[in-house]
Design a protein around this nucleic acid. Sequence first.
DNA 1: AGAGAATTCCTGTCTAGACCAGTATTTTGC
DNA 2: GCAAAATACTGGTCTAGACAGGAATTCTCT
Lengths: 256, 256
Amino acid sequence: MSRQRHEVRNLAPEIFTADDGRPKGRHIKDVLTTLVHASRDGELLPSERVLAERFGAARMTVRNAMDELESQGLVRRVAGRGTFVQHPTLVHSEIFRSFSEDMRMRGMVPGAKSYRSRTRPAPRDVAAHLGVAPGVPVHFIERVRTADGVPMALERTNLSAERFPALLAEMGRDDSLYEVLGKMYGARLETAEQTVSIARLSPAEARRLEVPDYEPAFLVERTAVDTMGNVVEYGRSLYRGDRYAIQMHVSRSASR
Amino acid sequence: MSRQRHEVRNLAPEIFTADDGRPKGRHIKDVLTTLVHASRDGELLPSERVLAERFGAARMTVRNAMDELESQGLVRRVAGRGTFVQHPTLVHSEIFRSFSEDMRMRGMVPGAKSYRSRTRPAPRDVAAHLGVAPGVPVHFIERVRTADGVPMALERTNLSAERFPALLAEMGRDDSLYEVLGKMYGARLETAEQTVSIARLSPAEARRLEVPDYEPAFLVERTAVDTMGNVVEYGRSLYRGDRYAIQMHVSRSASR
DNA sequence: AGAGAATTCCTGTCTAGACCAGTATTTTGC
DNA sequence: GCAAAATACTGGTCTAGACAGGAATTCTCT
């Protein structure tokens, strides 16, 4: 049987040819980035020589593009074995941060893919957490949070409409909620109580996160308070189980 | 007059030859890093072709090493002009962080170059800031803080010996004070009051920061409190004026 | 059938150019 | 003396290999 370590993923051949006037190396990098995001963690990529042949480029040109992916943590190269896709596990720690801050610290570009928001009467459970009466208006925001364009979490959050009038008009799809709250309303959030459990994504949720149906995810129930101790936000968000891990300090004296 | 854009800095010729068994590119990168740290911001580096000649290497090999310096922000390359040393200005913002946290967020390795500490009777001014009686024992720590081995600040700080017994025994030279306080004493610092003024480095201070005598520096007088509102630390540190800038949000409603 | 050798494939490292476009310096002509 | 052209130098991009060492696969011999 002829030796065949792998096959180039089923991509249209024209993807490999650059004709948009940009440098060939830049085009190669972009295609490889797309390839990586479309692959599973640990998957073997085509060899440098195969890619060079496909791109009609020198192996060094492909290597230089791959160098950049490696420095971004998107691939891992092993001499003698090959190049493997790497989806870095994102550690959710105890340090209080917004999603946007979190991603930026990892050298990623935070964003959102879909954004739904409306002001509605508070359901009983939401009201209980926010410390308001059931039925009073609250803002509900739901969006798929992305890092470098890749869906990472389904964020659902609630805030008092009385406390933050016109919030939905101020919020952009990609905006950091905490930054808007800070800038527009002077609300500073620094602590939150979180409860983490395992949930299975419904088909609709899985589709939005672009993962298989019923995939396990972290369900993070979060109540964030401002510096005055008032509850500002109550959220129930889903974080992909294949891309996140939880890190926490366990000790007798909980230093909070 | 013969064309002479620049001369290779007065380095011993043997620095350019690698004989430690490591890959030539790695050696070149290390030498270039040293060269950059020994140069002033904005200084023109030798061209790639000159360096290749000096290293006895291919221009591509030098370029690849320079690529890495560029991605670290240490150099800036301009087609047609040259490669310039870049010492990124470190912005000191209002966000409360330890030096270690700050440097790590910038992708740098925090450390210390010299470390002096002792427990002494509190001078009057230190006592006033710490809220203790003059003469009671306080810990005094003085060290040169480094980022990637380069001196950035001369850190001087005082803490109550009563509140933090045996602190000096717990502290390592490169340790983050705030992390030790958190871990060993459960003290969490999140806010501080700072007064920033301009100071001129004394020759002794300048020597420790490896900058010219009388160079201007930021004198940051800082009083940090824990979450209970107790003063934990009073410090008077010097930050290099050529590497730092201060960023602050100015508004009528000071959102703290 | 299994073990060891040989072969093949992989990435790592490097050389030695070529050519392009931008910028700086020198030379030439008015 | 000055402006324009020519020249030289710079980094940017790319090609086309060579060789080394690690890992996987295939082949050969017992």
